[in-house]
Nucleic acid binder design. Structure first.
Lengths: 192, 192
DNA sequence: TCCATTCTTGACATTATCGTCAAGATTGAC
DNA sequence: GTCAATCTTGACGATAATGTCAAGAATGGA
């Protein structure tokens, strides 16, 4: 190694993640990334190849953080409490920032038609990961639910979180989202 | 009226709707619209002003059809049957076409940051309209649910439909979506 | 100290899109 | 039939984005 890279890669990817999160893969330009990271466009091309390669790195970092946070939330308390924490964390995640950045996975999913197979697969991976985590928590609840039922219910719950992400983009506030999530939990989990 | 318009406006708007539905407001270009409608770009600019104006017309047509269909579905049978019909119609709507076009409202919602206030308002209007229709159906169910509860539950149901739209984009099949919706209905409406 | 290698930089070529406009074509009204 | 209004057409200019490249800068290793 001789001509040495002038920037911190982790920092650049983290900053790129923020740009993609706010603008989306498609709408974020290399100029946006260059401006935000302070690294010239040409250097980014040299280091990563193209925009999508940068996105994939950033998204992988995001997915890892996200799934870890989801797992932690679900694990705090019993299954019911875990679900509540889970929704809390999901909603905070998507309403964070000024203005809120929304949910990166959902935004990316909606661009499916103009994304590469690789990007689409990343989205599916996150959703599958989420389903698995939720199913695990649900299964831990006392008896009378089959494995298949738990999986089905987990998919319902994950689907609902995607709905929250859409509602956020439509202008619903954090408070409204939390209320809606609470109603959902009551309706689905409350065995009254 | 002298130099008379050479194309059928309803037809053009209907075709434009299809283009927007498949590509989204942002990704559909005036060239796409010109090619699909057979009307020259210049003529479209002359007739409507800009792309967004065309979108708004198309979206209004879409919203009207959509809400009417939703109302009809909800009205067929009792509240439980209505909900089932409602989800059936929503899922068919988003998985129709080859390849499926997804949900236009959801796609448009996700582009919020790069859309005009007018477009964003249209999205909110559709969601509010849906909520109202669902709340009305739910309220018709025998007793023991307050008006406020019905509204909250309606919002949960609409949010869930948005989630289905995201899952469709993520690659879930019509069959999977139907199964998920059925599980949701059981969990939410089934008072067991 | 010098060199070979790698990174950085700014310019370039390409492509795509937008919206505008002048000139020509069309047609309803008289 | 003629005219005036309106639509249609294709070219134009502006802007923005992509990805590439040659020349220069920087630096670890001998």
């Amino acid at each position: 190694m001789v001509g040495v890279r002038q920037f911190d890669e982790d920092e650049v990817i983290a900053t790129a993640l923020d740009v993609f999160w706010r603008k989306g893969l498609h709408d974020a330009t290399m100029q946006d990334l260059a401006a935000a990271t302070g690294v010239q466009r040409g250097s980014l091309y040299n280091a990563y190849g193209d925009k999508e390669a940068i996105f994939l790195r950033a998204f992988d970092q995001y997915a890892e953080q996200f799934l870890e946070a989801a797992g932690n939330a679900l694990g705090r308390g019993d299954a019911a409490a875990g679900l509540k924490n889970f929704f809390e964390m999901i909603i905070v995640n998507m309403t964070d920032g000024a203005p809120p950045r929304g949910c990166l996975t959902t935004r990316t999913a909606l661009d499916a038609t103009i994304s590469s197979a690789e990007v689409r697969q990343r989205v599916r991976d996150v959703l599958a990961g989420l389903e698995a985590l939720v199913a695990k928590t649900i299964s831990a609840t006392p008896g009378r639910r089959s494995r298949a039922d738990a999986n089905r219910l987990a998919r319902v719950i994950v689907t609902f979180t995607r709905g929250l992400a859409v509602m956020e983009r439509a202008g619903y506030s954090r408070k409204q989202l939390k209320e809606t999530a609470a109603t959902f939990i009551d309706a689905v989990v409350g065995d009254r």
